[in-house]
């Protein structure tokens, strides 16, 4: 069974391993045998204006999405963990729904509404869509952060004369910050890589995945796409490793075991 699991891991990683292989390959065709080492595809990257502008669009959208979905996630996770209120199950169910809803449904329904309201779509509408789909991920990360806080700590702070606001800043926030950072990083990564919603809602300001999509049609552009993909995958893995480390540190701080993953 160990062998099977390793084989499965190889299957999972096989396509991703090919990415750097062809990104450094000195040939315009993506095929074996490899033709020798080159970094020219990477050197070309910053010289393409459409690419660099799409990178900035993506970074802008991902940053705002990360902040918005984390703030909304804090509200929802806090309410779900600490309070009992009317309609809690249906309300939380609706908020978590985008997790299982096909993205194309989210994309077309937002498109219809925005166009009908006469709003011109652009980066803001991509942010709206991305915030919606990132929120459930933020909530599931922050849920465990809030669950690990001993309510007695906050009560003690209130009893000792702190206000609710200062208790939040001085007691709650320091305890949840690893989860907070993890949520920001995960939301940023999801938004950065998301294609379908961005494709429907981005209009004249393409995000990086939308730009990539437009380049896939041109065989001569493929090595550059491979180089770009390599950088994107490296960035995603880096952000994730950081998020995972923080998440575990947070759990250890709260004296919990560090088993289990993000989801």
């Amino acid at each position: 069974m160990r062998a099977y699991t390793w084989a499965y891991l190889i299957f999972l990683y096989a396509p991703i391993v090919l990415l750097p292989l062809f990104a450094f390959n000195d040939s315009t065709t993506i095929a074996f045998p490899l033709q020798g080492f080159t970094t020219k595809w990477f050197v070309q990257l910053p010289t393409i204006p459409a690419l660099t502008s799409s990178v900035w669009t993506s970074v802008k959208i991902a940053s705002i999405t990360a902040v918005l979905s984390t703030i909304l996630g804090v509200c929802a996770a806090r309410a779900a963990v600490r309070y009992r209120f009317i309609g809690k199950r249906p309300i939380m169910g609706l908020i978590m729904l985008p997790l299982v809803l096909p993205e194309i449904i989210v994309a077309v329904s937002l498109l219809v509404v925005f166009l009908q309201l006469g709003l011109s779509i652009g980066s803001w509408s991509v942010i709206a869509g991305h915030t919606l789909i990132c929120m459930p991920f933020a909530i599931s990360i922050l849920n465990s952060s809030f669950q690990n806080i001993d309510p007695a700590l906050e009560e003690a702070s209130l009893d000792l004369g702190e206000t609710r606001v200062s208790t939040f800043y001085r007691v709650t926030l320091p305890l949840i910050w690893p989860g907070l950072i993890a949520s920001l990083l995960i939301s940023f990564t999801i938004s950065l890589d998301e294609f379908i919603i961005a494709f429907f809602l981005s209009s004249t300001e393409p995000t990086l995945p939308v730009y990539l999509w437009s380049q896939l049609r041109f065989p001569t552009k493929l090595p550059v796409v491979m180089a770009l993909g390599t950088l994107l995958v490296c960035l995603s893995i880096l952000l994730l490793a950081l998020a995972e480390t923080l998440r575990r540190r947070g759990l250890r701080k709260a004296g919990q075991s560090t088993e289990g993953g993000f989801l």
Partner: peptide, 9 residues
């Protein structure tokens, strides 16, 4: 507390 994310959704 749940109303901002709920209204957004």
């Amino acid at each position: 507390l749940v109303s901002p994310p709920f209204l957004t959704t």
